[in-house]
Design a protein around this nucleic acid. Structure first.
Ligand SMILES: [Mn+2]
Ligand SMILES: [Mn+2]
Ligand SMILES: [Mn+2]
Ligand SMILES: [Mn+2]
Lengths: 219, 219
DNA sequence: ATTTATTTTTAGACAAATCTAAATTTATTT
DNA sequence: AAATAAATTTAGATTTGTCTAAAAATAAAT
């Protein structure tokens, strides 16, 4: 079976919003895809006819086994290409998302497998997100939200919870990236801000909103 | 300006049929693109409105300077990706065309430049065709049609005039590929077939039709 | 110079993906 | 339990790309 770019983008968006389990609303989907609810409804009917999801009107949507398989294949391609762009072509980790958004729709199965082999079967993409293997399995990162990191435990930033340019701008300014080693010096309960320390730098505080989208691996 | 995959495929097809100079017919274009003449006419009107070509009804079509620039950019991407697939990912040179047909439409300019640099600015693709540089210039291959090769002059196959699976099947069977060294032993005027000899193999004859699509570089 | 054949264009229809505005269903308040 | 608000779907249009069949222009043949 072959699917259009639009169909694939819908499947991937449902997969992300569904996040393992749960049902996804038409409005949330419309927001995620920068389209309108009416357009989403039309697409859901079509994808239901293609057996990629279960959908009853007004009841929300959920991917079928087939749908999940397709979603994982797209996510796999997206993250492998991101890895390729950063690791092989020396892109910055903050400029690959848009390009991968296109590359993820290239259909050749053989290309994905050869690319994976060439890259050495990487387990995580440049943003710290796990790359599904050819069977759709992905490693579970033993990472924790920065909010939950214990004080004075050194950890390494392993993932960010968003790829928005706004976030990336802030991270660049604060000099934080994937691989940055830091530890928490203080947690302020008033506004849930936290003071962090990066080696050879002065300690500084970051907001709750920022801490919530940073994930770290204890080392 | 941004163009659809269909628009880009039309521009590229016109470029190839136009071959440097000349005017291209609606029917030839329809054949090349596996579509119908009526559809081509519609597209020509649109591309004319976008100033990519000059077109008068019943008079054929010709790319504008802008159109040629776009065509060269697409050809550049197509051939760079083919080179990447063969050189980096170890694809066979006979299985990359279809994949490149998709990859050539990825829009990121930065990706093309980074890919080119990573590959070491290759001048020819795996089929021996020249790769336009970032300014659209391409090397002129000092190659000659096998038909025109002098008898007993050793030469190396440098390009094939088609990527049809039928041709590739025949070449595989005859054990001929890019880089194969051979010389002509005899030319038969009756059917214009020629007898060729590859080192460590017995001589054999190939048809006029085959010889016409093989290009060689004298060494 | 007509007639015939070929090429090309137009007319009209259709599927995919999208939108706006109106109608309908479900959820939340009074 | 009504009334109101929010979410969702339907109805009807629009754009893009495609097709078939008929009409028009050009080319080739008698
Ligand atoms: Mn996408
Ligand atoms: Mn990523
Ligand atoms: Mn193409
Ligand atoms: Mn090629």
């Amino acid at each position: 079976m072959n699917f259009s770019v639009t169909e694939e983008n819908h499947i991937k968006a449902i997969f992300h919003l569904q996040q393992g389990e749960g049902t996804v609303s038409t409005n949330d989907l419309a927001a995620e895809l920068h389209t309108k609810a009416a357009s989403v409804t039309d697409m859901l009917k079509k994808l239901k006819a293609k057996k990629l999801l279960s959908y009853e009107r007004y009841k929300g949507v959920r991917l079928s086994v087939e749908g999940k398989k397709l979603a994982l294949a797209i996510v796999r391609k997206h993250r492998l290409w991101e890895y390729f762009l950063v690791d092989t072509l020396q892109f910055g980790w903050d400029e690959v998302h848009e390009v991968a958004e296109e590359l993820e729709h290239i259909s050749s199965k053989k290309l994905v497998e050869k690319l994976d082999a060439f890259l050495g079967y990487p387990k995580f993409d440049p943003h710290g997100d796990p790359i599904p293997d050819s069977h759709g399995k992905m490693a579970v990162q033993q990472q924790v939200n920065l909010i939950d990191l214990a004080i004075n435990k050194t950890a390494e930033v392993s993932a960010v919870g968003s790829q928005s340019t706004e976030l990336l701008e802030l991270l660049k300014h604060k000099n934080i990236g994937i691989g940055t080693r830091l530890e928490i010096k203080k947690k302020f309960s008033f506004d849930h801000s936290i003071e962090i320390k990066i080696k050879n730098q002065n300690a500084f505080t970051i907001s709750q909103q920022l801490a919530q989208v940073l994930f770290v691996k204890i080392i």
